Simulated assay, not measured.
Amino acid sequence: MQEDDVLAEFRASKALLEGHFLLSSGRHSAHYLQCARVLMNPERAGRLAVALASALPRELRRQITRVVSPAMGGVIIGHEMGRALGVEAMFVERPTGTFELRRGFALEPGDKVLMVEDVVTTGLSSREAIKAIEETGAEVIAAAALVDRSGGTADLGVPFTALIALNFPTYAPDELPPELAATEAVKPGSRAKP
């Protein structure tokens, strides 16, 4: 799948939004990715996962014994990556603010884990998920995401593969370009207040 094909999947699902958005970081952007929308169609989610799995180096794919994703954003793509790679998929979640395995999920020492996200921006959540996985004795051998928004700066401590890199400019509140300053910001993310 080429970059244009991936963007077409995001546009077809109305997951690539344009307007004026207030990001969870407090910065503003004219673009927003709502990955939950691109993944709500099972066939599309499967196609994207197969493409992402194919983008991983072949030798790495052969070593993966489990896929683990951080909840909530990584759950669907993590499940589909498990299917694409033919291994079990599970997720870590933060019931008390720190990622942990729950719901009967368990990793074994010696498991070779692929940590999968929907979007990596700063890499903080990914690193926190990797730490929780490694605390079980399993080894995270790589990380993957549908979208890398870090501009290539996210250091996850393991090889990282993204299906697409999107680097939309973001702005501090006092740096807004006139076209954004003229419109009200919308906060569409999962951390938006109702």
Rank of each mutant, 00 (worst) to 15 (best):
M1E: 08
Q2L: 12
E3N: 15
D4A: 15
L7M: 14
E9F: 11
E9V: 01
E9P: 00
F10T: 04
F10R: 07
R11I: 06
S13G: 05
K14A: 14
K14N: 15
L17M: 14
E18I: 01
E18C: 01
G19A: 09
H20L: 05
L23K: 12
L23I: 05
S24R: 14
G26Q: 09
G26R: 08
R27M: 15
A30W: 00
A30M: 04
H31K: 13
Y32F: 14
L33W: 04
Q34M: 10
C35E: 10
C35W: 00
C35T: 11
A36Y: 01
R37D: 12
R37H: 13
V38P: 02
P42E: 06
E43H: 12
E43F: 12
L48T: 05
A49N: 06
A49M: 09
A53D: 10
S54C: 09
A55Q: 13
L56H: 05
P57W: 04
E59A: 15
L60C: 10
L60M: 15
R61T: 06
R62C: 03
R62F: 00
Q63F: 01
I64G: 03
T65S: 15
R66A: 15
V67Y: 06
S69D: 08
P70I: 02
G73V: 02
G73Q: 03
H79S: 14
E80V: 01
E80F: 11
M81H: 08
G82V: 06
A84L: 07
G86M: 11
A89E: 03
A89F: 02
F91E: 10
F91H: 08
V92Q: 06
V92G: 05
R94H: 04
P95S: 07
T96A: 14
F99N: 04
E100G: 03
E100V: 11
E100C: 12
R103E: 06
R103P: 00
R103G: 02
G104T: 05
P109Y: 05
D111H: 07
V113M: 10
V116D: 01
V116G: 07
E117K: 13
V120G: 07
T121Q: 08
T121V: 08
T122G: 06
G123A: 10
S125G: 11
S126Q: 11
A132Y: 03
E135L: 13
T136Y: 03
E139C: 04
E139R: 13
V140R: 07
V140Y: 05
A142I: 01
A144T: 02
L146E: 05
D148S: 07
S150R: 09
G151R: 08
G152D: 07
G152K: 05
A154V: 02
D155R: 14
L156P: 01
G157Y: 04
V158I: 08
V158L: 05
T161E: 03
T161R: 11
A162E: 09
L163T: 02
I164E: 03
L166C: 06
N167Q: 13
T170V: 15
D174E: 15
E175I: 00
L176T: 04
P178L: 08
T183C: 09
P188R: 10
P188M: 07
S190K: 12
R191P: 00
R191F: 07
A192M: 01
K193P: 01
